[in-house]
Amino acid sequence: MAKITFITSDDETIVVEGTSGSVMELAVEHNVKGIDGDCGGVCSCATCHVHVKPEDMTKTGPASEIETDMLELDDNADEYSRLCCQIEISDAIDGVELTVAK
């Protein structure tokens, strides 16, 4: 079980819990604004871009090469950016805070 906090572009804080699947799926299930997950999680659409709270990066790990290639072309990306369809839910990411990218 992992507790995950999303902060949307309207500054709304949404705390949800999940046990399996991807963070994107969890966000879509809970209608987190700004996480669309158009491609269903195959890393093709970049509509699940989040900024991980810097101190939580050790829990989520850095973006993979395929994410980096995509994020490189996103003007709002930074070193804490992840595509959350590529973050698997597990106990390891319990407590992370993710800010939905604009």
Binding site: C39, V42, C43, S44, C45, M70, L73
Partner: peptide
């Protein structure tokens, strides 16, 4: 069931 599939079949970027 290709898991990672960064295709551009719907285009890419602003004009997707």
């Amino acid at each position: 069931d290709r898991k990672i599939n960064p295709h551009v079949g719907f285009g890419f970027s602003h004009h997707n």
